[in-house]
């Protein structure tokens, strides 16, 4: 289920004096099953880009193809797109509303017009996928912890059986363990179900650890689009646009500068540990 963006631009308040170009000639090709990280400072166009991927915003110019079909074609079924490209907003737990966890997750598939059995199967399956324990299924979603609420909200989107899952900062406000649990769960979803994952994040460490590919947004344009190693090689340029490399990258650069023969491309703790041990112990 590939997504292709072909020269997509979007202008907020077009035709007014306050027009702002939020997306500027964006071209992306996101193939099946990839784990893509999107980074950029506040206002760089990340969220605007995400909202294009499931048709919440319509590009001012350019085209978007989902599975080879032009989503702006008048015969294209936008409703189907929205069930196939699931979007989890920031602080999604604010959108929980049902009396218990299970009913909340049922809400989406129920609205697809599926029969009750299928709805409940999907809800159960989705809650299992996010690793929520069974005993919480009939609790009020408001009695859960922050991390649990967020899982329920993600399950609500998963129950729609999307092919592409977009998450806008799914770990904001969670404690370190909660952050790790959510990301591990998402990674597992990708490897086990082959779902395409698009993760918007402010944590360079998380991006370095989990994703296959990073898209860096700046002023509505794609600044870099490459594997993490390649992107973080440009750490100086990233800093200029309000981003950074993972902390490990800075340590490796500092060591190299002092004359140690380490690979500055290491971006995760595991890679750095290996590199430093090689240099010091041998």
């Amino acid at each position: 289920m590939s997504l292709i963006l072909d020269h997509v631009s979007y202008i907020y308040g077009d035709d007014t004096t306050l027009a702002v170009k939020a997306l500027d000639d964006v071209c992306l090709n996101i193939p099946d099953g990839q784990f893509v990280g999107v980074i950029g400072h506040t206002g760089s166009g990340k969220s605007t880009l995400m909202q294009h991927l499931n048709g919440l915003l319509k590009a001012t110019s350019g085209s978007i193809y989902f599975n080879g079909e032009d989503i702006y074609d008048k015969d294209f079924d936008m409703k189907k797109l929205r069930s196939k490209v699931g979007l989890v907003f920031q602080y999604p737990e604010h959108q929980l509303f049902e009396i218990d966890v299970f009913s909340d997750v049922c809400f989406g598939p129920k609205n697809l017009g599926l029969d009750r059995k299928e709805v409940e199967l999907r809800a159960y399956d989705a809650l299992k996928k996010v690793g929520l324990p069974d005993e919480l299924f009939y609790q009020s979603p408001f009695d859960l912890s922050g991390g649990q609420k967020r899982r329920v909200a993600i399950a609500g989107v998963l129950a729609m059986k999307p092919d592409v899952l977009i998450l806008d900062e799914p770990t904001a406000g969670l404690d370190p363990k909660g952050r790790e649990e959510i990301l591990e769960q998402i990674k597992k979803l990708q490897t086990e179900t082959g779902m395409t994952i698009i993760l918007v994040s402010h944590s360079m460490e998380d991006v370095a650890k989990y994703v296959d590919r990073i898209v860096v947004m700046n002023r509505g344009k794609v600044m870099y689009d490459d594997i993490p190693k390649e992107v973080f090689r440009h750490y100086k340029e990233l800093e200029e646009v309000g981003l950074a490399a993972p902390q490990v990258t800075y340590i490796m650069h500092a060591l190299k500068q002092k004359g140690l023969a380490v690979d500055v491309d290491a971006t995760t703790i595991e890679e750095a540990t290996e590199q430093i041990c090689l240099e010091i112990l041998h």
Binding site: P176, K177, E205, P246, Q247, V248, I251, I269, T273
Partner: peptide
């Protein structure tokens, strides 16, 4: 305790 340490400390 569900917490962490700074990346440098962890390395």
């Amino acid at each position: 305790l569900r917490l962490d340490v700074p990346q440098v400390t962890l390395l």
